[in-house]
């Protein structure tokens, strides 16, 4: 069970669009994906007859999708809107302007009761998943890069006990927050994730794109891309750093050895068997890392650049969404 050595693709669904987000109905193969065509689609990954059903309401890319405790689907988009959906009727239950700029990620606490959003207005907002009420605003990231360009707040990570939240931005700055109080607990930096080219091209690229806490909340994994020579492309190896965040120490550094691009998603195995990461450049990759041995257990080319993924309850099956495809892997042989 959950053995990366047995990893194999069991399903591939081609799509005409770019999929930026994915959610899965518990104990099922029913998927929800957020699309570049401004819609959310639902379909059963293994039912060939399942025609994707569209949820219409966003006005730009749908960048985040979560399911709440009460079973509502919540989507966020580059239009700054956060929309609660009735999954059955596909009607909007609630729609609000959550941010003034692109929502980059929508997350939910493990109890499904708090929805978390981050956006390029550099604010993290916490929302009551049931009522849609704004619970808290977290401000800890600078709106501009050191070179006077707009910064971007790309990602979040929530600890499995629901107490901690991490946010990270374009220049490699990370803030760990206590969710209950909104208190800033720690600030960290992973500056190699941000490339500023002062000479050849005079702009920047990169940023931290993924965060994940270990099951015991001690470690914080940070994913992105290393320093890029030619910033016309995602032309550096995907980069992963792990921090003992309370100590402020970097415990692991994986500069990459094979695949270029961004780590778009990170997930820790609950028993610490592996850390799963996925992402890509023009191509995609999926990678398993053993933090104890500090070694890559397995890494494979993915059929597409992966933007988001979820795993099933047993951590055996991986559902990934990305550029023009949904792919399902299994690891139980």
């Amino acid at each position: 069970m959950s053995d990366p050595a047995k990893l194999k693709v069991v399903k591939q669904v081609d799509r005409p669009d770019i999929l930026f987000s994915i959610a899965r109905l518990p104990e099922s193969t029913q998927l929800y994906v957020g699309s570049s065509d401004q819609r959310v689609y639902s379909f059963d990954a293994f039912d060939e007859k399942s025609k994707p059903q569209a949820f219409v309401g966003h006005r730009s890319y749908v960048s985040g999708l979560v399911l709440t405790d009460s079973g509502q689907l919540v989507s966020g988009g580059y239009d700054g809107r956060l929309i609660w959906w009735n999954r059955e009727s596909r009607d909007q239950v609630r729609s609000l302007t959550a941010h003034q700029k692109w929502i980059r990620r929508v997350d939910v606490t493990p109890d499904g009761r708090t929805v978390v959003t981050v956006a390029d207005d550099m604010v993290c907002r916490l929302w009551d998943a049931e009522s849609g009420k704004l619970l808290r605003e977290l401000r800890g990231h600078k709106p501009q890069t050191p070179h006077h360009f707009p910064s971007m707040l790309f990602c979040t990570g929530i600890s499995s006990d629901g107490k901690l939240l991490a946010t990270a931005d374009k220049v490699g700055h990370i803030v760990v927050w206590e969710i209950s109080s909104g208190k800033k607990l720690k600030e960290l930096d992973a500056p190699k994730m941000y490339t500023w080219d002062p000479k050849q091209r005079i702009h920047s690229i990169g940023g931290i794109r993924s965060l994940a806490f270990s099951a015991d909340s001690r470690l914080l994994a940070v994913g992105g891309i290393g320093q890029i020579g030619n910033i016309d492309h995602l032309g550096a190896l995907a980069r992963l750093e792990v921090f003992d965040w309370q100590k402020g120490e970097r415990t692991h550094e994986f500069p990459g050895d094979k695949f270029k691009g961004l780590f778009e998603r990170l997930i820790f195995h609950p028993q610490g068997k592996w850390l799963l990461g996925a992402g890509g450049d023009h191509n995609g990759f999926i990678k398993f890392i053993d933090l104890d041995s500090k070694k890559v257990i397995r890494q494979e080319k993915a059929p597409m650049h992966i933007h988001d993924l979820v795993v099933d309850e047993n951590y055996n099956r991986i559902y990934a969404a990305g550029h023009g495809k949904v792919v399902v892997w299994e690891m139980d042989g």
């Binding site: 360009f149 091209r201 005079i202 690229i205 910033i231 995602l234």
Partner: peptide
């Protein structure tokens, strides 16, 4: 001359910087 706009990767982030400028 304002170089370099050749955004084969991350076109939207690049243009957010350069078009804003």
């Amino acid at each position: 001359s304002r170089a370099w706009w050749d955004s084969h990767g991350q076109n939207f982030e690049t243009h957010l910087e350069l078009v804003s400028e």
